[in-house]
Structure formats: C-alpha cells, structure tokens
Design a protein around this nucleic acid. Sequence first.
DNA 1: AATTATAATTGTAAATAATACATTTATTTT
DNA 2: AAAATAAATGTATTATTTACAATTATAATT
Lengths: 234, 234
Amino acid sequence: MHNKYNNEAKVFVAVDCIIFGFDPNAEELKILLIKRNFEPEKGNWSLMGGFMEPGETLKEAANRVLNTLTGLENIFLEQLKTFSIVDRDPAERTISVAYFALINVVDFKDELYRDFSATWFKISEKPKLIFDHNDMVTLAMERLRFKASVEPIGFELLPAKFTMRQLQMLYEEIFEEKYDKRNFSKKVNSFGLLKRLDEKDKSSSKKGSFLYEFDMEKYKKRSNGFQIRHQIMN
Amino acid sequence: MHNKYNNEAKVFVAVDCIIFGFDPNAEELKILLIKRNFEPEKGNWSLMGGFMEPGETLKEAANRVLNTLTGLENIFLEQLKTFSIVDRDPAERTISVAYFALINVVDFKDELYRDFSATWFKISEKPKLIFDHNDMVTLAMERLRFKASVEPIGFELLPAKFTMRQLQMLYEEIFEEKYDKRNFSKKVNSFGLLKRLDEKDKSSSKKGSFLYEFDMEKYKKRSNGFQIRHQIMN
DNA sequence: AATTATAATTGTAAATAATACATTTATTTT
DNA sequence: AAAATAAATGTATTATTTACAATTATAATT
C-alpha cells in the first residue's frame, strides 16, 4: 500500500449511536438498542453502528446509520467521544466514535427498524451491551444531563405539542429527581421559550391541560443561546 | 490485506494536542505551538501531534506526544473531539482526535522543546494554524471555559503556591471578564479548597500577599466533586 | 524618623434567585 | 347534584449574587 505516511498504521473507524427517546404516554426516557446481526457478538444487544466510509465525515456516517435504522432525517446528533481501547473489538483493531442522538419516539414507524430487532428500553432496564457500549451509554447519560442543564434540548425529545406535565416528567427522568410543579412551571416559563396554545389535552384529566409549543424563533434570536453559568466566577 | 471486515476501509488516525499554560508572571493564558517539520505544510505553525500506533490507545498516544514535546508526565489531558472532514489533511485521509492539556508553564525546560521550535503564544496573538487546527483551538477554549466553570481546573495551570491575585488573573484570562476582587476571594474561599499558607510573596507589593495551596485532599473527599448546576431545573 | 507610595486585605447593604409549601378550579362521571 | 380527578396558581422565607471603598502592612524616599 502506497502513501505519504508510510511508516504509519491504518485502522478501522466505526460510529455507534446512543439514541434517546421520550415516550410521552409512559412518561419514560428510553434508549434504542438492536440485536447485532453479524460476527463477532452476533445476536447480542448493541448500539446501532457502522463503519465510516472513505467519502464521508464521521457525522455523515452517524447520520447514515441513524437514517438506516429509523428512516428519520435531521435528527439532533452530537459527537460524544472516541473509544480506542486496543482490543475493544476482538476481531480487528477498530476505534469507534460514539454519537448521541435525541428523537421523538412518536415520529417512529415500527416497520422501519423491525429488520434490526430494534427495541426501546427504559434506561434502568437496559440489557448488558457488547464491547464498550455500556461505557458509551453511561457517558451519553452524563452528556444528556449536562446538555439539558445548559440548552433547551428537552424539546428535541417531545412531540411538537406537549403538556407542562410531560415536560416536567421528561426533566425528572433525565435528572432522576422530582421537582415541585409550581416551581417547575415558574422556572420554565421564565425562559420565555414556551408558547401556551388555546388547546387542551384531555386524555389525562377531566379539566384537561393546556398544550405548549417550543418557541424556536425566540430561541434562535437569542443567538448566543443559553449561556453556561460560571460556577467559579459570576 | 486480510481481515474480518474486508469490505471496509482503514484510515490514518492522528492525535493533536491543544496545550494551555498560564504564565503567572506575565499573568497571561498561553498556548504552545510548534513549527511543523515534515510535509505537507512543513514550516507552518501547528499543534503538536502524531499518529496513533497499533498497540496504544488514543490517550496513550496523546500522552506520548506530549511527553516527547515537554518531557512532562501525568499532565491533565482530556479528549476534546475527533475531526474528520474528508480532505482535512491533503496528503492522506486522516482523522484526528484533539486532546486538550493543561500545564504549569513554570515546570518547563526550554531545551526540551527547542527541537520543535515550540513557542508559547498569548491566545489572542496566536498565528494561523495548519489544517483544521484553528477550529480545534476554538473548541478547546470553549471546553476550557466550561471545565473551569464546573471543576477547579485552575489549579492545573498554576504553580503549587500561588497568590489570590494570580488565581483571579487566571480566571479573568479564561473567561475574558473582570471580577471584583472582594467578591472573587469570597467566592473561591467559600468552596473550602484553598489553604492559605503562612508565607508571603513580596515580589509584587510592599505589603506582600499570602500564598495559597490547593487542598487536593479535600477535593478528592468530595468524591462527586463539583456538581454541574442545572440551569433548567434546580 | 517621618512621609509617601504600593498593592493587599477586608465587610455590608441591596437586589436577585431559589425554595418550600396548599388551595382553588374546570370538567367528567356517577 | 355530588364526587372524583388532575390542573392551575401565589406568597413568604431563605440563600446567593452583586455593587461598592476604606484600611492595612511594608518598603522606599525624604
């Protein structure tokens, strides 16, 4: 093989996707896993992944992998970390770049991922995964918590219209903490990014609860978005 | 070439290090750059980097690269992001994993990095860098700010004994903001991680200013360290 | 010996943000 | 008409953040 860096070794580069979804009915945060259909570790639970191809970037590879599984485009997708323990994949030296993705479970069509034996698991009930995929999920949860504390990513996980209760449940799932509903709604309203509609969802109570929408316009206008709060200073 | 994933392509994997240092005398945050000594882009300013070798992880590669340049061991080192634009390196398809490192400038011996024409630059005065190294530095600055707002990493950048003024200057450099010195010392003391010594530094004033040490023991005991503050909730 | 110059040290009041906590309201079902 | 259900809402207390300036210790100068 001829190249300019000819003393150096090449390796395989894979991407793996940690796909989070929120089920607004069950009010549970979930993760999408597949049964791996090739060796090694065929038949075991795994993150959805694939190899980076010559003409694409890592993010393009992750998007392709995600689209293959879900049929969805324009998914929230962010690089997490590259994993490189030497024998993480027993077959060949392969490093893997983990991406984490947020989707709205409701957008889903079951047929699309039937082929992969894909299943949504409650985070607390996920099975053991192959290779270092467990570490990837742990790190992704941390990142999800961090992101949720700094940016309004909750809206990536909810349907376009949602109730205050669903929003609160989502944050309670993410942070594994309970909040007072008076203080919660006070706080989220203070950001000024919620539009209350004149529409009610009556599925869960006799009174019905107002539906809200995320105000994407306003969010974009605040171009610097939410600012990281300095804990040491200011 | 024979392997189990034989439809897949292999690529070169490099690491590049964004090395931050704080000069406690000039009271400036700096970055360490080298003049690249091989093609392509020979002679231009660059981050210190190298290829990942078959038997090592990315972090081991980054540590090796850092040690080659500085002679230092046990440096604060954290993976930042993997860069993968297809033609980022015009010679060969190469992805690069950026690491950011924090060192104490005072620990340095000039001879060790003379070979690389390494130079400390004030962040605001850094030259244009090769490939996508400018993006790496920009991202590293953001990460530095984030880390500094969540963990007491300032101490990685200071000498073992430092003055309150130096600590404040460091944070002012990182955040590009000025702080009130009464509020600053009140705040950092409230964390309970500073030990004031019975020693004074008289180099900058007639009165002299107390020297402080970071209380590593106490920090480790608070095993969960500093907690990320939830901006959305609580 | 007294004065001056320099940066270090220190405190308090006001404003803002976070928390704790329980009753009333709208609607459907019985 | 009454009962049942979850939704909607407000206030007082506490904690945190901010704004702001006078005093102190020492070395250098007169």
